[in-house]
Structures are given as C-alpha cells and as structure tokens.
C-alpha cells in the first residue's frame, strides 16, 4: 500500500477540526486532576487516618487503567442511575486518573518549601491564612508549575482513550476517516504528527517557564 500524501493532506482539516475538543478536554482534565490531587494531598496532611485513606485512594487510582475508569463511568454508572454525557465522562475519567499523579506533584511542591518559611512568616505575626496565601502558596505554585505542565502533556496524550467512548476528539475522527475510506495509514499518521507537534510545543513552553521560574531572580 502506497502512502498517499495528497489524501493525507485532505484528512488534515477534519482532524484539526476537533483539535479544540482535544485541547479543551486536556485543559479541563488537567484542572480537574490538579484540584482533586491537591485536595488529596491536603487531606493526607490532616492526620494519620486521613493520611492512610488518601494513601490508599492515590495508590488505588494509580494502579487502575485509565480505560477501566472511562468504561466504568460510561457503562456502569448508568446502571445506578447516573448517566453522564460522553464528554463529561471523558473529562471526569482523566481527572480522576491523573489526580493520583498530581497529588504526588503537590506533595513534592509542598515538601520542597523549607520549614523556616512558615516560621519566619509566623514570627512576623502573620495569621494562618496569610502565611499560606502570601508565603507558602506562591512558593508551592512556583514549585509545581513545571511538573504540572509536564503532566498536562501526558493528559493531552491520553485524550485518544476518549475515542473508546465516542468523544469527538482527534484520534476518533481519524478512525472515522479510516473506516469510511479503508485507508488507515494516512489519517493515523496525520493524527500522530499533530500530537507530536502539540506535545513538543507545550514541552518547550514548560521548559521556558521553568527557566523563568528558577532563573537568577528566583532561587
């Protein structure tokens, strides 16, 4: 079978037509995973029982396949009366799955702040809320920015799983073209290249961000 470049070019507009869905799903999932992961990490610090429960939750999430989460949410939840649109299931599934990883990112980001920072802030008379919002949170955000960016790339690359529950994203649209035309090489190659370009661009952005955050002016 010959690779038809002209045909490959004609698949590009269709595939790029849903790039917006792919990116929005990845962004929303990354936000969801961050909120969830951060909550896990904060809960983990609340005491020994919460710590144990959260450790279990995080390990459980990280030990189950993302596709299992998507199928569970999409096919099993309706039996219990919760029917969610495929797009919502996709964002929810990716958020849950990656929250396990982002919890670790937030753990590292918080642990990396020296103990003396909170002590110095308290010694100046700042109340708890101000200690967190003016001293600890900004440093945590700086510590997690680059790792969260890297996980964003992972989430982006996981969006093709959503083809399994018929969310109109890039891999799904490539597969649609393939089943209509019986030509697989061109649409799948194009979708691969689009992901490659996206991922490389974001990774470069993360690298620049990292350099800016940890440059000479900022420890």
């Amino acid at each position: 079978m010959n690779f038809d470049f002209a045909f490959a070019a004609t698949t590009l507009p269709t595939i790029l037509g849903v790039i917006g869905t792919t990116i929005s799903v990845a962004l929303l999932s990354c936000a969801g995973a961050s909120i969830l992961g951060f909550s896990f990490e904060i809960a983990r610090r609340a005491g020994s029982l919460p710590a144990y429960l959260m450790r279990f939750t995080i390990d459980f999430i990280r030990s189950t396949p993302v596709l299992a989460w998507l199928y569970f949410l999409y096919f099993v939840l309706p039996h219990w009366g919760f029917t969610l649109p495929a797009l919502v299931v996709g964002i929810l599934g990716l958020s849950i799955y990656f929250s396990g990883y982002l919890a670790e990112v937030f753990k590292a980001g918080i642990d990396a702040i020296p103990k003396g920072q909170a002590e110095a802030a308290k010694a100046l008379g700042l109340n708890r809320i101000d200690v967190v919002s003016f001293v600890l949170a900004p440093q945590m955000l700086r510590n997690v920015a680059a790792p969260v960016g890297n996980h964003f790339v992972s989430i982006l690359k996981a969006t093709p799983y959503l083809a399994a529950i018929a969310v109109p994203e890039m891999l799904g649209s490539a597969l649609d073209i393939a089943s209509n035309t019986y030509r697989y090489a061109e649409p799948l190659t194009v979708v691969g290249i689009v992901f490659l370009v996206l991922a490389l661009t974001i990774a470069q952005g993360v690298r620049l961000l990292e350099r800016k955050l940890h440059g000479p002016t900022n420890r």
Partner: peptide, 8 residues
C-alpha cells in the same frame, strides 16, 4: 540562622 527570607 538560615535567614528565611521569602524567595519569591
């Protein structure tokens, strides 16, 4: 001892 200035 460690200054503990806020680096950000």
């Amino acid at each position: 001892q460690q200054f503990n200035l806020f680096p950000h």
